[in-house]
Design a protein around this nucleic acid. Structure first.
Lengths: 192, 192
DNA sequence: CCTACCGATCGGTAGG
DNA sequence: CCTACCGATCGGTAGG
């Protein structure tokens, strides 16, 4: 009995996070109310507060689950035996797949980070920095000219993230361009 | 007397827009209250409603004033007698100057577009499309290979906008990289 | 009779 | 697990 409930508990927590991610992505964290989330989950506000202590904790769950997958991509690439260029291309493809596969969570991560309380904000920002640093080291490792100027290397890295982070605003899954195509276009532009 | 008041009226309207832009940029449209804006202007909420009929009209004023400057950049470049490449490089430099010089308004334009009512939303989106189309035509005009595939050209254009639109999240005016440097880095990446 | 402007409060809804 | 609520604050407007 207890085990069945525990299994159900985790399923409901994940269902709440998924519905919340969709609503936060569509209306913003402040624009989507706790009642909205409850309705989307076919439950009551009170039930929602049984699974998460606050609206901000739901937001954190949305962001943490997503960024941990991106950190998993970083670890996958770090375990490769390959050149920086090959690792960068692979990492960009993995990122784009997660960006597209979890578009709502990715949008929430980019738009509503400042709505997290300070302690949770710091955790997410720290993980973002790990990801950015990994990309920057692959970029400078493959291009010795970049290693000379730290500011230039950071700028190029952030231009790269601009390209992939903005895809949520225009990417159309039903079009001819696929996630791998975008990853390769970005790769060619930053290495060409 | 009447002329003095009219002049004051326009000054106050502009001051409200500037303060609102800063607050919307810092907290988001929903996170900044009308009371907050009034406080930042050292006036009352009632006075604010004397100058703008609603909070949404203030948001529209923030966005419209900014995007009209970007459209002015497009017109400046259209009046040039130069190659598509030279026009694109010039346009990117003009954009980056306005992005940096009006960072709050640019951030609001990118983050809070969906908080506009439908009619005003359509106006801003229409102007954005003009800007995107201009950049795309300069990009394909300078690169015949791109003209072959519409989807590829649109993708490259949006990757370009990703780079410059994301700069608000990392650009540091006190660092060694200047707006022209970013514009030229972007230019080199999309044409190289 | 107009405008510019204030302190106080409206009806509803937010997160909890 | 729900209905019924709270203290506070929301965008917007009243009288004067």
């Amino acid at each position: 009995m207890a085990r069945t409930q525990a299994a159900d508990y985790e399923e409901r927590r994940e269902a709440i996070v998924e519905r919340a991610a969709e609503l936060f992505a569509a209306r913003g964290f402040l624009g989507a109310s706790v009642s909205d989330i409850a309705k989307a989950c076919n439950t009551s506000k009170s039930l929602l507060y049984h699974y998460y202590p606050s609206k901000e904790d739901v937001l954190y769950a949305v962001m943490a689950s997503h960024i941990d997958k991106l950190l998993g991509d970083v670890e996958t690439v770090q375990a490769m035996d390959a050149t920086p260029q090959e690792m960068l291309r692979k990492l960009l493809r993995l990122f784009m797949h997660h960006y597209v596969g979890a578009a709502s969570r990715q949008k929430v991560l980019l738009n509503d980070l400042d709505n997290l309380p300070d302690d949770k904000h710091r955790i997410i920002v720290g993980k973002q920095r790990q990801i950015v640093d990994m990309v920057q080291s692959l970029l400078t490792g493959g291009d010795p000219a970049l290693a000379k100027s730290r500011a230039q290397a950071r700028a190029k890295t952030m231009l790269l993230f601009g390209m992939i982070n903005w895809t949520g605003n225009w990417y159309d899954a039903s079009g001819p361009i696929k996630p791998d195509d975008i990853a390769d276009m970005v790769y060619d532009m930053v290495t060409g």
